[in-house]
Design a protein around this nucleic acid. Structure first.
Length: 555
DNA sequence: GCCGTTTTCGGCCCGACTGTTTTCAGTCG
C-alpha cells in the first residue's frame, strides 16, 4: 500500500460521496486528506507503524481509522459499502473532461449507464441529449472527451512510473545474484507518458531473483515467468517486466531495450548481438557502431543516428546545471509553505535563486494576491533577502492572462517585480485565432518575462488548447519572451516538440517546477528530461545561468 | 469530516464561463 494508493482511495471516497450529494465539507475533508498524503515526505506505512497517522494534517479520527484499516486489510469497509451503491465504472465517467458529479449522477440514474463503454454507446445512440439540462453540445463534448481518454488509455504519468521504477530497481540491486540493473524502455527515455515499467538485470543465474520480485511490496500479481523474463503487475494496475540477461550482453541489451523500436531497428540493421558481446558499456557499443554516444532521451529515430554519425549530438543539459527556479507558489496564495521555508528547501538543491510567483487576484479560488498583498509580500522578501548570503529570492508573480489578453495587474505594479510569469487559467475553449491573439497580446507587454504552461495541456486529463505555435514562437522571439517548460508531471508544457524548435527562433526556455509544496521542487527532473528530449543544451535554459546573467536578460 | 489564542460548535475557497435555459445549474480552476 503506497501513499498514492491510500490517497487514491480517499479521493474516490470523496467522488462517491459527491455523487451521493453528501455534505460538501465532508467531501472536501476527504480530498484534503488525500492531497495531504500525496505530499507526505514519509511513507504512510512507516507512519502507521509509529502510530502517527493522526499527525497528518487534515486527517482526523474518522479518516485515520479508515487509513489504518486500508493498511491492515488492503481495503476498507466504508469504501466497499459505497461501491455497492455506486459501481466503480461510474467513477471512471468523471474523468471525461467537462462532465462532473451532477451529470454523471444524472446519466447513471436516468439511463442506467455504469461505465465509459456504455457511455460511449449512449452518445452514439444520441441518448445523452434526451436528458433534462443536457443537449447536443454536451453530448458532443462527451464524445470528444471519451475520444481523448481512449487515445491515452493505459498510459501512466512519468511522474508516477519513474519513482516506482527506480525504487524497484534499487530493491533488485540488493539481491546477491544481481550484478547490475537499470530501468529501461520509455521511462529511461523520459517520455511523459509510459505504458509499463521495464527493468533490465545482469546476472549469471536467475536463482533467487524470481522470489525477490514476488516479495516486493508493490507486486500485486505475476502474469508470466520464464528463466529470464518475469512479467506482472504492481498495485495501481501498473504492468512491469524484468528481463534477466548474461552480464556479457548487458550493455547490448541496455541499448536494445532503451531505444524506441524504430531507433533500434535502424541502429542494429547491419550488426548482430554476437558482434557486440562483452562491451563494457553503452558508449563502447556506440563506438563499435561508428557513432557518437546517443543519450537515452534522444533514442527515438528523430535524426539522432545521423547526428551521431556526424558527431553532431548536442551536449544536453543536466539536472545539476539548474541554478534556480522561476515559478514557485508560497502560502501567500495556494502554496503550502512560507517563503522562508521555500528558500531553505531551494538552497538544499544548491540553487542560487528562486522567484516567488504567487497567483494574481483573478484566481480568487487559489488565494490570488491583490495589489496590496503583492506589495506587502515584496517587503517580506526584502527582509528575508537582507539576511541571506549567496542566495536571492526574486519578487515575482504568475499573472493571469485574462480572456482579452490583458493582464491581471497594471504595468505600474508589474514594473516593480523582478520576474513576471504570465499564464492562462481560464477560457480554454476559445478558437485558435482568438486564443493565439490573446497570448500574443500578453507577450507584447514589456513586463512579461516568461509565459507559463503555454498550451494548458494536462496529460491524460485535458488536451492542449488550440494555438498557432508558429505565431507564438515568432512573437516570443520578437519580444524576447522566455517559454516555460513547466515541469509538473501532469503538464510538461511546452512539450518536447516545441522545445526542439526554440533554437531556430533564438528563444530561451525556463525549466520551472510550478511548486505548490517544497517537495514539488524536485519536479524539475521531469522538466529536464523533457528539455533533453527537445535536444536542449545548458545555454538554452535561462535558469542555468547566474543571477546576473538572468537579470540582465530580463532587463 | 476537520479544526481551533474568538476551541467542543460553527465555520470551512468563490467567481467566470458554458450550455441549457429564459433566469439558472454545472463545471472548473
Amino acid at each position: 500500500m503506497t501513499n498514492r494508493d491510500v490517497a487514491g482511495i480517499l479521493a474516490k471516497i470523496a467522488d462517491l460521496l459527491e455523487i451521493k450529494e453528501e455534505n460538501i465539507y465532508k467531501i472536501r475533508a476527504y480530498r484534503k486528506a488525500a492531497n495531504s498524503i500525496l505530499n507526505l515526505d514519509e511513507n504512510i506505512v512507516d507512519l502507521y507503524r509509529m502510530d502517527s497517522i493522526g499527525s497528518i494534517p487534515g486527517v482526523g479520527e474518522a479518516v485515520k481509522t479508515k487509513i489504518e484499516e486500508l493498511i491492515e486489510k488492503g481495503s476498507c469497509e466504508y469504501y466497499e459499502k459505497l461501491l455497492e451503491e455506486i459501481p466503480a465504472g461510474v467513477l471512471d465517467m468523471l474523468s471525461v473532461p467537462g462532465i462532473g458529479h451532477k451529470t454523471v449522477k444524472l446519466i447513471y440514474e436516468k439511463l442506467g449507464i455504469e461505465n465509459l463503454t456504455e457511455l460511449s454507446k449512449a452518445v452514439e445512440e444520441k441518448k445523452i441529449r434526451t436528458l433534462p439540462g443536457l443537449g447536443v453540445k454536451t453530448e458532443e463534448k462527451i464524445r470528444r472527451g471519451i475520444e481523448f481518454l481512449n487515445k491515452n488509455a493505459g498510459q501512466i504519468l512519468l511522474g508516477v512510473a519513474l519513482p516506482l521504477a527506480e525504487e524497484f530497481k534499487n530493491y533488485l540491486l540488493e539481491a546477491d545474484a544481481v550484478q547490475d540493473a537499470c530501468v529501461v524502455g520509455s521511462i529511461r527515455r523520459g517520455k511523459p507518458l509510459v505504458r509499463d515499467i521495464d527493468v533490465l538485470v545482469a546476472s549469471t543465474t536467475c536463482e533467487g531473483i524470481y522470489e525477490r520480485v514476488v516479495a516486493y511490496r508493490n507486486v500485486k500479481t505475476i502474469t508470466s515467468k520464464t528463466s529470464n523474463h518475469i512479467k506482472g503487475q504492481f498495485s495501481g494496475n501498473i504492468d512491469f517486466e524484468v528481463m534477466i540477461v548474461d552480464p556479457r550482453d548487458y550493455a547490448y541489451f541496455l541499448v536494445w531495450t532503451t531505444g524506441s523500436r524504430e531507433h533500434r531497428e535502424m541502429l542494429f540493421k547491419n550488426i548482430s548481438k554476437n558482434d557486440l558481446r562483452g562491451c563494457k558499456n553503452e558508449a563502447e557499443i556506440f563506438r563499435k557502431l561508428g557513432l557518437q554516444y546517443i543519450p537515452p532521451e534522444l533514442r527515438e529515430n528523430r535524426g539522432e543516428i545521423k547526428a551521431a554519425y556526424k558527431h553532431e549530438i548536442p551536449k544536453l543539459l543536466d539536472l545539476d546545471d539548474l541554478r534556480g527556479d522561476l515559478h514557485i507558489h508560497s502560502d501567500w496564495s495556494d502554496g503550502a509553505h512560507s517563503i522562508q521555508d521555500l528558500a531553505v528547501a531551494a538552497r538544499k538543491l544548491n540553487y542560487s535563486y528562486i522567484a516567488v510567483t504567487d497567483h494574481s487576484k483573478s484566481l480568487f479560488i487559489s488565494g490570488g494576491l491583490t495589489e496590496e498583498r503583492l506589495l506587502a509580500q515584496g517587503e517580506v522578501i526584502d527582509h528575508i533577502n537582507s539576511v541571506l548570503k549567496d542566495f536571492r529570492i526574486l519578487k515575482g508573480i504568475e499573472v493571469d492572462i485574462l480572456k482579452d489578453g490583458t493582464l491581471d495587474f497594471s504595468d505600474e505594479i508589474l514594473e516593480k517585480l523582478d520576474i513576471v510569469v504570465a499564464s492562462v487559467h481560464s477560457s480554454f475553449n476559445l478558437d485558435r485565432e482568438t486564443q493565439t491573439q490573446r497570448i500574443v497580446k500578453a507577450m507584447e507587454n514589456k513586463h512579461v518575462d516568461i509565459v507559463g504552461h503555454l498550451t494548458g495541456r494536462l496529460l491524460n486529463r485535458r488536451s492542449a488548447y488550440e494555438l498557432d505555435i508558429d505565431k507564438i514562437l515568432e512573437t516570443a522571439a520578437k519580444n524576447k519572451v522566455v517559454l516555460e517548460i513547466n515541469s509538473h508531471p501532469d503538464r510538461l508544457d511546452i512539450d518536447e516538440f516545441t522545445a526542439r524548435r526554440v533554437k531556430e527562433y533564438g528563444i530561451k526556455v525556463a525549466i520551472n517546477s510550478d511548486a505548490h509544496h517544497k517537495g514539488d521542487l524536485h519536479f524539475v527532473k521531469y522538466g529536464v528530461l523533457n528539455a533533453r528530449r527537445g535536444w536542449l543544451e545548458r545555454e538554452d535554459v535561462v535558469n542555468t545561468w547566474s543571477l546576473e546573467e538572468l537579470l540582465s536578460y530580463f532587463e
